[in-house]
């Protein structure tokens, strides 16, 4: 059974159809990329999956459960974590605190135990910290641990966002343009980390990406969109050479 299924999803904003009748499936364990010109509806699809927008029609199924109408905050609990195109970090806090917030879905404590900081809360905090440190080690963020986000360069922030999403320990990771704003060196690092995340941690990745080299290198399958409609799905080379895709990018 597929990990994630989108069936005929559509949404429009004030008469403009941002996404119309798009269907696709994501298999467990793969890296699935979404490509397309600006305004094709890629980020909108992410916002639909993470339930920031409501679909007008169609269904979303994750891990056998219908998530079309679940509240936004439940999505990460079910195992979907995401990053944002222009980074949405907690700017006035340290990297460490940001990542600890990423652990929030695994919270067992409640308000009253927090108020008293019971031993169980302390144990939970230690466990969270251990998890955070594992992620920090994986993505090489050690030297930024105690720095406030607002003081960090953009490339590092992007990686911190990936790290924060990993702290959720998701089954499905949504990366919105992970390489935008990164220099070539950082982009190369990113491709290795994608491999690690996908291969070692076994996390399924869906990413929106403009860098075709990275897409070709990292992804198992690619979906191309244009003007909110699906154009082609297939292996990177299939999609890259698809006549409709070429037309969408280059015009007639």
């Amino acid at each position: 059974m597929s990990l994630f299924v989108a069936e005929d999803i559509s949404i429009s904003f004030g008469g403009i159809k941002a996404v119309q009748d798009v269907s696709f499936t994501v298999e467990g364990g793969e890296v699935f990329s979404i490509v397309g010109p600006n305004g094709a509806g890629k980020t909108t699809i992410f916002n639909l999956i993470s339930r920031i927008y409501d679909v007008d029609q169609g269904t979303l199924t994750f891990d056998g459960q219908d998530i079309t109408r679940v509240p936004t905050y439940v999505v990460p609990e079910m195992g979907i974590a995401r990053t944002f195109q222009n980074t949405e970090l907690f700017d006035q806090e340290t990297v460490l605190k940001n990542l600890l917030i990423g652990c929030h879905v695994h919270r067992q404590s409640n308000f009253f135990s927090d108020l008293l900081f019971l031993p169980s809360v302390r144990r939970q905090e230690l466990a969270f910290r251990q998890r955070v440190e594992d992620v920090i080690d994986l993505l090489d963020l050690q030297r930024y641990r105690d720095q406030v986000i607002a003081n960090l360069p953009y490339g590092v922030r992007k990686m911190v966002e990936v790290a924060r999403a990993l702290c959720v320990q998701p089954k499905l990771l949504l990366l919105d343009e992970p390489s935008s704003g990164l220099n070539p060196e950082e982009t190369e690092d990113l491709s290795f980390w994608l491999e690690d995340i996908n291969g070692d941690l076994g996390i399924t990745i869906v990413m929106v990406e403009h860098d075709m080299n990275l897409v070709a290198l990292a992804s198992d399958r690619v979906m191309a969109l244009a003007d909110g409609a699906l154009v082609a799905i297939g292996t990177p080379s299939e999609v890259q050479n698809h006549p409709e895709v070429l037309r969408a990018y280059l015009g007639d």
Binding site: P76, E77, A81, L89, I101
Partner: peptide, 15 residues
């Protein structure tokens, strides 16, 4: 603190 700094992102972290 998460709600203070970014509501969108807080939601997506399960808050």
């Amino acid at each position: 603190v998460a709600v203070r700094d970014s509501e969108t992102s807080a939601q997506s972290m399960g808050i």
